[in-house]
Amino acid sequence: MHSHVNSIWFLIGLQLLIYGALITGTGIWELFYPPARVVDLAWMHPAIWWGAILVGLGLFYVIHYRPSRTISN
């Protein structure tokens, strides 16, 4: 299989990793500096756990489809 076909999964993982880090970071920041616009269920801190899920998914795809691995395969 051509490595560039598999690279899409790596790119998706990279983007999810970046988004997850930004969203989790924002969620943690809001613990100390609550935003002016209060949303429903804000007490559940969805930014923290949803961001963490994105980081987990992103890490899986980045590691599993990293270029060095797909090219050697």
Binding site: L22, I23, T26, G27, E30, P35, R37, V39, D40, L41, A42, P46, A47, W50, G51
Partner: peptide
Amino acid sequence: AKYCGPAL
């Protein structure tokens, strides 16, 4: 807008 704060 109902559920998503900044970043989300």
